[in-house]
Design a protein around this nucleic acid. Structure first.
Length: 511
RNA sequence: GAGGCCGUAGCUCAGCUGGUAGAGCAACAGACUUUUAAUCUGUGGGUCCUGGGUUCGAUCCCCAGCGGCCUCACCA
């Protein structure tokens, strides 16, 4: 097992044995009174002398090492940054042999006085140090880091350890999640958890993953959406609820789709689509401002919050652009959405099969996706597309006096669908009808089985009028951290399985 | 599902018209008390993704497979 045939491993193992021989546990122990690399650096001021400044004790991975004989310079990295350590033989003579054992990739701690070198590099001149954990395998190349995309995803620990910008993305992701929860808590939302395993996968149209519960001997589905459960909570009187959790959709994988993805879904009683629009805009603008400050420094005052994304710059300054679905349709498809004959004509021109058998709204939706949605890629601001054809929105309230439209918006950023919101449908009669229409393609018994009768019953007990909003968290993090692939914001994205992990011969993880 | 590109040392990458492979970093041995991707001298290290085929000879050409990236399709 392990790496007995790997020469690098053997050399490192020999050093490990030397640590053991000198009485050190090569895998370390609890460390007290540590400060971060960033904190240590901030202790250094203009008045700090060359050496003999304030004391500091730090720990981290050795990412650079320059051994120039009786003096060793080491750069350690922790999750706040880097700091240089200076080890001089004259101060560490009795333990110099141990100092010489340290190598790239080891995790070590150092204590000493802050100072700097003659070139001004902030340095801790170590008077004490120790091994915190021995690295038995070599780290990726110290300058280029780990570039191989497959290795970065399969061995994320190497990516995080070697690529500071990758670590930054995931630290930013955590801060974004925290900010969202703060934002919602300040507005009296409560966080809940609803079933991930559902007997009837509802709330969206997507193929589910299927599993089986042995003791109950029933088929269960990993949820494609929490919507129908969160709405039950509205019925129960939880007036502002949200859930941030995974959804699972058994569909294609590309730069904006991972089979499991994180969704924020929230419901606010007595609100509506306009309320959700305002909430979305305020939340995203504040998240963008926070990210802007994190990257450019909080002191930077800007009148417009702009973040780079790929080849472009996205302007998050509210108000976001608002364009109605029908206007976009008219502009890019060329005929009015409500002109059935003209829409049909355009559909035939674009080679849609079986147009005559399709519902008008479905034809509209198909043409929109083909001709209008791609154009949303060109906007350099987030865009609210609102008032969707009712036939495409089985869970959405119809627009007053315009029953062919549904009070729904989708928010697009850089052409990517980031959010989806409704004035929620709370009329059980209409809900029953739309469920029936949605299930029309199924056989009667399948249709009955798939229909969530209890959800209809819940609506019959009375659900307050409400606004609901879903935000794709992974895509949001992409936009805020300038990553154009969802795999760069998901720690362990789904990849095809392999016999062994990456290029190392570490035993494969059985899944 | 279709197409394009890719897979070479631990890592980052070269490799011409087909003649069984190179560099930098890392490693190993050594020198060096202010380095900054330290530098200098020397050394070792390869299932060229896998399996077939063509050929006197394949990292290179052909076929199939595996894996990755991208584009498109699918995904109300």
């Amino acid at each position: 097992m392990l790496q007995s045939d790997n020469p690098e491993f053997k050399f490192r193992l020999a050093r490990l044995e030397k640590w053991r021989a000198s009485g050190t546990d090569p895998f370390g122990t609890r460390l007290e009174a540590l400060i971060s690399a960033a904190a240590a650096r901030s202790l250094h001021t203009a008045d700090t002398p060359h050496d003999g400044g304030p004391s500091a004790k730090v720990a981290g991975r050795i990412t650079l090492l320059r051994d120039i004989g009786k003096l060793i310079f080491i750069t350690i990295s922790d999750w706040t940054g880097k700091i240089q350590i200076g080890l001089a033989k004259q101060f560490l003579a009795p333990r110099w042999d141990q100092a010489k054992l340290l190598e790239l990739g080891d995790i070590a701690w150092f204590a000493g006085k802050l100072g700097h070198t003659k070139t001004g590099e902030i340095t801790i001149w170590a008077d004490d140090f120790g091994l915190a954990s021995k690295a038995l395998l070599p780290p990726p190349e110290k300058f280029h880091g780990l570039a191989d995309t497959e290795a970065r995803y399969r061995q994320r620990y190497l990516d995080l350890a070697a690529n500071a910008d990758s670590l930054d993305v995931f630290l930013a992701r955590s801060r974004i999640m925290g900010s969202i929860r703060e934002f919602l808590a300040a507005r009296q939302f409560v966080e809940v958890e609803t079933p991930m395993m559902q007997a009837i996968p509802g709330g969206a149209a997507a193929r589910p993953f299927v599993t089986h519960h042995n003791a109950l001997d029933i088929e269960l589905f990993l949820r494609i959406s929490p919507e129908l459960f969160l709405k039950r909570l509205l019925v129960g009187g939880m007036e502002r609820v949200y859930e941030i959790n995974r959804n699972f959709r058994n569909e294609g994988i590309d730069t904006s789709h991972n089979p499991e993805f994180t969704m924020l879904e929230l419901y606010q009683a007595y609100s509506d689509l306009a309320g959700m629009m305002e909430l979305t805009e305020t939340l995203l603008a504040s998240l963008a401002a926070a990210r802007h400050a994190a990257v450019n420094g909080p002191a930077t005052t800007v009148d417009r919050v702009k973040l780079p994304y790929g080849e472009r710059i996205i302007d998050f300054t509210p108000p976001f652009q608002r364009i109605s679905y029908s206007d976009l349709f008219l502009e890019h498809v060329g005929v009015p959405m409500i002109d059935h004959a003209a829409v049909r004509q355009r559909a035939v021109e674009h080679g849609l099969a079986d147009v005559d058998k399709m519902d008008h709204d479905v034809v509209v939706g198909t043409l929109f996706e083909r001709l209008a949605e791609p154009k949303l890629h060109d906007y350099d601001q987030p865009v609210f597309v609102y008032d969707y054809p009712a036939g495409l929105c089985p869970l959405t309230k119809r627009k007053a006096g315009m029953p062919h439209l549904a009070e729904r918006f989708e928010l697009y950023i850089a052409g990517m669908e980031l959010a989806n919101a409704y004035t929620e449908l709370n009329d059980p009669f209409i809900q029953y009808e739309t469920f029936s229409a949605q299930l029309a393609g199924l056989r009667e018994e399948d249709s009955m089985a798939r229909r969530d009768h209890d959800f209809i019953a819940a609506l019959c007990h009375g659900m307050p009028p409400a606004g609901g909003l879903g935000i794709g968290i992974d895509r949001l993090v992409m936009v805020l951290t300038n990553r154009t692939s969802i795999r760069d914001v998901v720690l362990f994205p789904l990849l095809k399985s392999r016999g062994a992990t990456g290029t190392s011969a570490v035993p494969a993880q059985e899944t």
